[in-house]
């Protein structure tokens, strides 16, 4: 399972067509799309990616079963993860519970693995130099890898949300949904909100993709890059828990992650969500440009 294999399959065909002259790269969007398609293939055809998505899909099933067993027992109401009280009333809320549980640990872990391995993994297996021989350009390659990382964020969030919806529908009643402001909305409206929330959750991982990509350009070891990225997520969340650090907490990329719950009020409260998205954009700008700066000016010897 390596770049050479994937590139030997679908990738090179698209690329050789798009090469007009040696040393001059094609300045077309088709060139980028070929590269992006290739990256996407590489990411999602890996067994590792499939296993990660599978784990993410099992998590909501686990939560659903535990909540179901628990509410049948004596410990009704109170305690446990967020939205538990709502989940027992409506299966749709399992989507939000599962996202709230997965967002601090599982989602960033999988994203960290994918983003951290993006460049460093190729360098480690020795396939990066072959990629760069093709006249695709390093900037474009990096952009393709970043976009593929974003698609993985969407896929990972969707895996959690869809599995949670299926589990919730199987174990709990569906129907009108009570929001956390006490208002009730119809099921179709609530599904729309679930899609919106999943989109916001996926977007709030964008900053992490950029950080992972940057770390990945620093080292030639895929494992080191993954471990550093995941370790960073954990460290930042620990820092975010200290009230003494109030001055810097609003600038930590995990700080507004759970603000998606504000979309479950009537009317929706966008303040935290917009701050979150703005913060992610800032992280993408800073670490994206750092990754570009590093990747386009270093020697690739492996």
């Amino acid at each position: 399972m390596s770049r050479a294999e994937a590139a030997g399959g679908t990738g090179t065909a698209g690329r050789t067509e798009a090469v007009p002259a040696v040393g001059r790269r094609p300045r077309t969007t088709a060139g980028f799309l070929a590269l992006f398609g290739n990256e996407l293939h590489l990411t999602f055809r890996r067994m590792r990616t499939k296993v990660l998505l599978g784990i993410l899909a099992v998590l909501p099933v686990l939560i659903g079963v535990v909540v179901k067993l628990n509410t049948d027992g004596p410990h009704e109401g109170g305690g446990g993860p967020s939205f538990i009280a709502q989940t027992t009333q409506n299966g749709l809320f399992l989507v939000f519970t599962a996202l709230a549980v997965a967002l601090p640990v599982f989602l960033p872990m999988t994203v960290g693995v994918v983003a951290g391995d993006a460049v460093a993994g190729e360098a480690a297996t020795g396939t990066l130099r072959y990629l760069l021989v093709a006249p695709a350009g390093r900037t474009r390659l990096l952009a393709a890898k970043f976009t593929a990382g974003l698609v993985f964020c969407l896929a990972a969030t969707a895996a959690v949300a869809v599995a949670a919806l299926a589990t919730g529908a199987a174990l709990f009643p569906l129907g009108e949904v009570t929001l956390i402001s006490g208002d009730t909305i119809g099921l179709a409206d609530a599904l729309l909100r679930a899609v919106l929330v999943a989109g916001v959750v996926a977007a709030s991982l964008a900053g992490l993709v950029a950080i992972g990509l940057f770390v990945s350009t620093l080292t030639g070891s895929g494992i080191a890059a993954m471990a550093a990225t995941v370790g960073l997520v954990i460290t930042v969340q620990i820092l975010d828990a200290f009230p003494q650090l109030d001055a810097i907490r609003p600038f930590l990329f995990t700080h507004y992650w759970l603000s998606f719950s504000d979309l479950l009020r009537e009317p929706m409260y966008w303040d935290g969500v917009l701050k979150d998205l703005g913060l992610q954009a800032a992280y993408v700008a800073v670490f994206g440009s750092a990754a570009w700066s590093r990747f386009t000016s270093r020697d690739i010897s492996a």
């Binding site: 109170g78 009280a85 956390i180 402001s181 009020r265 409260y269």
Partner: peptide
């Protein structure tokens, strides 16, 4: 509406009716 972390607490007064609703304990 008090906006709590991943939960909400709502107090409504409407004429001679008053409600307090706590989402975390339903």
């Amino acid at each position: 509406d008090m906006m709590e972390n991943m939960a909400g607490y709502t107090m409504v007064r409407n004429g001679d009716q008053a409600w307090a609703w706590d989402s975390s304990t339903n």
